[in-house]
């Protein structure tokens, strides 16, 4: 796929009187690692839920992998992988059973599933743990497994919602190596985070403040524009200038 993976134009989602995502406009190029930054409650998750077809927008337009978020949600679901904020593999199933379940749901053949499972276990150095229940794995491994399962059907775009929450710095680094690995294979990565060091790893960034997308650009551009030495500073400056109460939600 060349060109654009995700397009959003004035994308808005309201819950009653509260506007969670407020006229957000951006695009994500195919093959890039796009970081979506924001404080808790800034609207990152709502945006990601719209783009993954879990939530209908209130207004505005968006397309993912060329499919419309209003009318072609099932087509979007076939083209994307998704890793939610909450760990969502089955703790009572083994590593292999979880992989097989999602492989089967995405319609992969038994032999493809077997080959990719072996490959995946080897890559994550989980070889010994294939028949262990997922619930017994340490959190870092669970997250890496969840990421790999989200990529199992080789989607064109993968959405990661705060994938490294609660994970130690070493594992976070390893996780980003996995993300680069996927991007290297041509997968577009859309990742939300509130770790500013992770923001530096992204090709381009969008920063959300109280539902609005306040800044968009490469980490370098953003630092320059705000005259800041680090992404941390950029972020704090934006957050302070942003909405008074909304960001606290």
């Amino acid at each position: 796929m060349t060109g654009v993976a995700i397009v959003a134009k004035g994308l808005t989602r309201r819950f009653g009187g509260f506007t969670a995502v407020d006229a957000v406009t951006f695009d994500v190029r195919a093959g890039e690692v796009f970081g979506f930054l924001g404080a808790n409650g800034a609207g990152k998750t709502t945006a990601i839920r719209i783009l993954t077809g879990l939530l209908a927008p209130s207004s505005g337009a968006a397309s993912v992998a060329g499919f419309d978020v209003y009318r072609e949600r099932e087509a979007i679901k076939r083209s994307i992988g998704y890793m939610s904020q909450r760990f969502s593999l089955y703790n009572d199933l083994t590593v292999r059973e979880n992989i097989r379940l999602y492989g089967t749901i995405y319609g992969l053949s038994a032999s493809v599933i077997r080959a990719r499972t072996d490959n995946l276990l080897e890559r994550l150095r989980l070889g010994e743990s294939g028949s262990k229940r997922v619930g017994t794995l340490p959190l870092g491994w669970k997250q890496k497994l969840a990421f790999s399962v989200a990529l199992l059907h080789q989607p064109r775009i993968v959405f990661l919602d705060e994938p490294t929450g609660g994970v130690d710095p070493v594992t976070r680094r390893q996780f980003w190596e996995l993300i680069y690995g996927a991007a290297g294979q041509g997968t577009t990565v859309f990742v939300t985070t509130h770790y500013m060091d992770e923001a530096e790893y992204c090709d381009r960034l969008g920063i959300m403040v109280a539902g609005r997308l306040d800044a968009l650009g490469t980490p370098h551009e953003l630092k320059e524009r705000f005259g800041a030495g680090s992404m941390d500073e950029v972020f704090l400056r934006l957050a302070r200038s942003g909405a008074p109460a909304g960001a606290a939600a």
């Binding site: 993954t52 077809g53 879990l54 099932e74 679901k77 076939r78 994307i80 998704y82 939610s84 909450r86 760990f87 969502s88 593999l89 089955y90 999602y102 749901i105 995405y106 319609g107």
Partner: peptide
Amino acid sequence: ELGTLEQLNVTPI
């Protein structure tokens, strides 16, 4: 409750 349904809901099932 577990959050596993959301994961299923983003699949083409």
